[in-house]
């Protein structure tokens, strides 16, 4: 469980996060939703310390992250996995080398055990026979899978995914979403997913936090989201004509 208490973050004179408090629950996929530029990425990167917050506190299962020194943070980061928007695979390394990388750096496993672990993770994301390929040779969906495998190779307690299905076709997007959700439940991880995609929300949103211009505007479950009377949220949820039509038809049929 990750507890965020009243964090704010500015870049120069631009305040991007304003007094956000939120709890991300263990064993669940916690979604942060909002329009592009609303501050989702900054919020996620602030929680993991890639951005320094200006004020507030962040607790990872009770451990105060903001107060930690560099070494302690590095130790805690070994319990985290992160999936970046552009996958952020290391270009000069093969798929296998990318996934084994954190193990080479920190693990005391033997070489065979490491390979076994890497293959386990690659199989888990349904990516066999790609071990020797380079990131440049992979499709967008395959890159995301490798990135997920790399993120889970150290058995993280916390998993962060920044727009995991951006740039993917809708079908592949759902596959990736479900993969993240399955892994979350299977290994009992505290998972946080940034997205602006309502399909993801409906698919995997066990807990949903809505950010509007750097302010936490609403939180609830994917079922509550459709019936909320929060105007900002409704603007976001029913932004597409398709969604509006469905809502209107539903409203009609209920009368």
């Amino acid at each position: 469980m990750i507890v965020v208490e009243d964090i704010s973050k500015s870049f120069g004179s631009e305040t991007v996060l304003k007094n956000i408090s939120v709890t991300f629950e263990k064993g669940k996929t916690n979604l942060i939703i909002g329009r592009s530029g609303s501050g989702k990425t900054v919020l996620m990167k602030s929680v993991v310390g890639l951005h320094e917050v200006d004020s507030g506190a962040i607790y990872f299962d009770g451990r105060d992250f903001v107060k930690m020194g560099t070494r302690q943070r590095q130790e805690l980061r070994k319990e985290m996995g992160m999936l970046f928007q552009g996958s952020a695979l290391f270009d000069s390394l093969t798929v296998e080398e990318n996934v084994i990388f954190p193990l080479q750096m920190f693990s005391d496993m033997t070489e065979d055990e490491k390979i076994e672990r890497v293959n386990f993770c690659l199989e888990r994301v349904h990516l066999e026979n790609a071990n020797k390929l380079y990131p440049g040779e992979l499709s967008g969906g395959m890159k995301k899978r490798v990135a997920i495998a790399r993120a889970i190779v150290q058995n993280p307690k916390y998993l962060f995914c920044d727009e995991p299905n951006s740039g993917l076709d809708p079908k592949t997007a759902i596959v990736i979403d479900n993969l993240i959700s399955e892994i979350t439940h299977e290994f009992d991880i505290t998972t946080i997913v940034n997205t602006h995609d309502m399909n993801s929300v409906m698919e995997i949103g066990e807990k949903v936090v809505f950010i509007y211009e750097g302010i936490k505007c609403w939180e609830g479950t994917k079922d509550e989201i459709l019936t909320s009377d929060n105007n900002y949220l409704n603007d976001f949820v029913f932004a597409s004509n398709l969604a509006k039509r469905i809502r209107d038809i539903q409203a009609g049929s209920q009368q």
């Binding site: 980061r77 992160m82 928007q85 290391f90 920190f106």
Partner: peptide, 14 residues
Amino acid sequence: ITEQIDALEMMGIN
């Protein structure tokens, strides 16, 4: 810019 440095940091690497 491709967040590979962030990825290193997230693994606990300096």
